[in-house]
């Protein structure tokens, strides 16, 4: 079942058209990877899904359905709560780890201290940070290592119980060990959440994703099960890209 359906959207920033007549469905749970060369529109696609596009000065035509309802028919804040996002560069708030994780729940009206503690604990466990930071919850989040910061950002996105998690090259600023940590965690999370990850790293897409979409110049070239797309791509351009002819 597709949790998100993208029907013929065109996205542009002013006069600059980034996605053209783009359609694609995203299956519930599991990991969908989006690959393609720089500037092909991958990140723009992600920001269209949670309406962050408009904060960056972009706009789209066409329709995007979330659980079979147009995303524009939901209040903007609800869409962003249900479709969480993690950015390329880790962006912890320069406040304590604890407050990073209670910031959004407090906004949504949770005041009970016990409940907040539980959210903090659960999200830290899910992101594998609990054992590393349990004694230091009042430490400034910006003092964590890069990998920990990124996992905290994922934990922060989970505090509002989203259905979908969008990740925009979450590992591009991290080393191999931290990348492995995050990949392992994403695999675990994909049992509960729908994960869409934009990545430059083809082997990462191959390692963790169930489905892969290849985008070129704002158009969907090929979208298939990851295994099939990487072993026997049906489009010559996909074949060239994964063989490293360009990109």
């Amino acid at each position: 079942m597709d949790i998100i359906k993208i029907n013929n959207i065109s996205v542009s920033y002013g006069d600059n058209k980034v996605l053209k007549d783009f359609s694609m469905g995203i299956k519930k749970n599991g990991i969908t990877a989006i690959i393609g060369p720089s500037g092909c529109g991958k990140s723009t696609l992600l920001t269209s899904l949670n309406l962050m596009l408009e904060e960056n000065g972009g706009s789209f035509t066409g329709e995007i359905l979330f659980k079979d309802k147009n995303i524009l028919s939901y209040p903007k804040n609800d869409i962003r709560r249900m479709i969480g996002m993690v950015f390329q560069k880790p962006t912890p708030f320069p406040i304590s780890i604890y407050k990073n994780l209670t910031y959004a729940p407090v906004f949504y009206g949770i005041k009970d201290k016990e409940k907040l503690n539980e959210i903090v604990k659960n999200t830290l466990i899910k992101t594998g940070l609990y054992d590393e930071v349990r004694g230091n919850l009042n430490m400034l989040a910006t003092k964590l290592s890069g990998g920990q910061q990124q996992r905290l950002c994922i934990a922060r996105a989970l505090t509002v119980e989203p259905d979908v998690l969008l990740l925009d090259e979450p590992c591009s600023a991290l080393d191999i060990k931290n990348t492995a940590n995050i990949e392992e965690m994403l695999l675990e999370l994909s049992k509960e959440y729908t994960i869409v990850i934009v990545t430059h790293n083809l082997s990462q897409a191959k390692r963790i994703s169930d489905y892969t979409a290849f985008i070129l110049d704002g158009q969907l070239v090929e979208y298939d099960e990851t295994e099939k797309l990487f072993t026997s791509p049906s489009d010559i351009r996909t074949k060239q890209y994964i063989e490293g002819v360009y990109g």
Binding site: N50, M52, E55, K76, N77, D78, I79, R80, R81, M82, G84, M85, F87, K89, T91, F93, P94, Y103, A104, F107, Y108, C153, R156, A157, T159, V160
Partner: peptide, 11 residues
């Protein structure tokens, strides 16, 4: 980035 992260949480 911090402002965007906050918006992205639906805040």
């Amino acid at each position: 980035d911090i402002i965007d992260s906050s918006y992205a949480l639906g805040v």
